[in-house]
């Protein structure tokens, strides 16, 4: 290959800064929206801008953030996972069942429960992915099936009852608050988001997640097997459902077969508001975190403003659609920017 330099004259060597700008444009829009919403409620809603209120919000977004982190992986490849809510329920009863055993010391049962939750969730996710790829089925259908299966299993495992009496050290850790405003479960959510961000941004696997969502056929014709990666993203989504189950247990101290109903829709909403495209290939997990924040800030803010409970879903539903509408404008703007 000739190392021709004549063509390079009209091309400037790209800087790290260019790349940073290119990647952060997506998050910037949602982050600005969050800031505006927070400022709005701070100005209008009584008690909104208080440490206690932020603490409350952080506690409330933890579960959804963890679920949405895994969901981001699936949606980035162009799939969807409707099963995370009931997989979470299954994992809470599995984890709680282990932790309430009298014959195990807390220092034995807690790590064991954590492992069991993660393994159960990952197994459900792996089955989702494998079934989708084996028979080339849409993930919507397969995970809708898993939603019901996992929910049924949760009832079987728990014998249709809630499980209480978790070990005290576990409950104490769940109530822990650092620096006055950072609850332990929120920190867990942040760690999950950071790990997800690292994987998507810096690993070969992350690159494939984006590439498959952009054009799966091109990835296949570039000499790779997209199916392996697609099974992996569902496994990740299941795994985060397992972690979210632990967060659920830390927060509510009870394992329940009817936990997590509707959680999958909140997770999807967070991902979408965060700027990730449902058709795959475009988006970011930091956006997902911001999306989860926007959802909860709206809910809390409206409550503090004295809005009726019935009004909240109307506003939140409108915001979800609005976010996607704005996203199309942002994409158009970005495209124009690129085409310069």
């Amino acid at each position: 290959m000739s190392e021709g330099t004549e063509g390079a004259g009209e091309r400037k060597t790209a800087t790290v800064w260019d790349n940073f700008l290119r990647i952060s444009m997506r998050e910037a829009g949602v982050a600005i929206a969050l800031v505006i919403i927070v400022l709005f409620f701070s100005a209008t809603a009584p008690y909104f801008a208080t440490p206690e209120n932020f603490l409350k919000i952080f506690v409330q977004i933890a579960i959804n953030t963890v679920l949405a982190a895994g969901m981001t992986f699936v949606i980035l490849t162009g799939g969807i996972d409707l099963s995370v809510g009931s997989v979470l329920a299954l994992c809470t009863v599995v984890g709680a069942t282990i932790m309430v055993r009298e014959d195990l010391s807390p220092w034995m049962s807690i790590p064991l429960a954590l492992l069991a939750c993660m393994a159960t969730g990952a197994a459900c996710g792996a089955i989702n992915g494998w079934v989708c790829e084996k028979w080339k089925l849409p993930s919507f259908i397969v995970t809708l099936g898993m939603l019901n299966v996992a929910s049924g299993l949760a009832r079987v495992v728990s014998d249709n009852s809630t499980i209480t009496g978790l070990p005290q050290p576990f409950v104490d850790f769940g109530n822990q608050i650092y620096f006055g405003v950072l609850p332990s479960i929120f920190l867990i959510a942040i760690i999950v988001i950071l790990i997800g961000w690292f994987i998507l941004r810096f690993t070969v696997f992350g690159r494939f997640v984006f590439a498959i969502g952009t054009n799966e056929e091109a990835v296949r014709l570039s000499g790779h097997n997209p199916r392996v990666f697609k099974i992996a993203v569902f496994t990740i989504s299941g795994l985060t459902a397992g972690i979210a189950a632990m967060v659920f247990l830390l927060r509510l101290n009870v394992g329940s077969p009817i936990a997590g109903i509707g959680y999958e829709l909140n997770a999807i909403a967070a991902v979408i508001i965060g700027g990730t495209s449902l058709s795959g290939g475009k988006g970011s997990i930091i956006g997902t975190l911001v999306g989860a924040c926007i959802l909860q800030v709206l809910a809390t803010g409206l409550q503090l403003l004295g809005a009726e409970d019935n009004v909240k879903p109307i506003v939140i539903g409108t915001v979800i659609v609005l976010a996607v509408v704005l996203d199309t404008y942002r994409n158009r703007y970005l495209r124009k920017l690129e085409a310069r």
Partner: peptide, 15 residues
């Protein structure tokens, strides 16, 4: 960068 220069792909940056 090397391939883009070698093949004379016309683009402002590789990004």
């Amino acid at each position: 960068e090397r391939l883009v220069a070698g093949l004379r792909v016309k683009t402002p940056t590789i990004f």
